[in-house]
């Protein structure tokens, strides 16, 4: 059953009417970007792409994105630095700019959260989920974020509590909710399930 609070990522498409394309991509998300701009030289020429290779560092995705000849391509070393760059670009974005996001869910979430802070309605952002199903999870107790969670329960990387991942997603935090799993049964942990590879 779908999680009602989790966004739906319908897949990227090119907005032909946009005057500017602001594209944020992570890892395998590059492939989704290539697919919509391939053979669309005019559109690419008005596109700014922020890309962080993540787990796809060994591939040549960045070169292929450069081959699209976008107006600008920013290849960034991490999701955090990509978001800093994106925030800078959003701060100067003009009317007629379409925002795109492609990559792992945690990255899409951060792009949407950045958009929200700059007054971009989340429903107007084109999104595509690519690569791992890993989740970004916020510990409800200490509020710390743990990236790339692939199993439940897992250990909070900040406070060390054993958390299970609740099927509840916050767009503002770009994260699922993690809740302590063994406080009613100290020392007794349910079996760890690899659910989000």
């Amino acid at each position: 059953m779908p999680i009602k609070s989790r966004p739906i990522y319908p897949g990227l498409k090119l907005d032909q009417r946009a005057r500017r394309h602001l594209v944020a991509a992570e890892g395998e998300g590059a492939l989704a970007v290539l697919a919509i701009f391939e053979g669309k030289g005019d559109a690419a020429a008005s596109a700014t792409i922020v890309y962080t290779p993540g787990g796809s560092a060994g591939e040549d995705h960045a070169e292929k994105l450069a081959d699209l000849k976008p107006d600008a391509l920013h290849v960034m070393p991490s999701q955090e630095t990509a978001i800093v760059r994106l925030n800078g670009l959003l701060g100067n974005a003009a009317m007629g700019t379409r925002l795109y996001a492609a990559g792992v869910e945690g990255f899409i979430g951060k792009v949407i959260a950045s958009g929200l802070e700059h007054g971009v309605d989340h429903q107007s952002i084109y999104t595509e989920h690519c690569g791992s199903l890993a989740r970004r999870v916020q510990c409800v107790h200490c509020k710390g974020m743990t990236e790339n969670v692939t199993a439940t329960p897992f250990t909070c990387s900040h406070c060390g509590l054993n958390l299970f991942v609740r099927d509840h997603y916050s767009r503002r935090l770009a994260a699922f909710q993690g809740v302590v799993v063994d406080c009613e049964t100290p020392g007794e942990l349910p079996e760890i399930e690899e659910l989000y590879r």
Partner: peptide, 8 residues
């Protein structure tokens, strides 16, 4: 939920 680890 914030304090569930204390009251659970």
């Amino acid at each position: 939920p914030e304090n569930y680890h204390k009251w659970g």
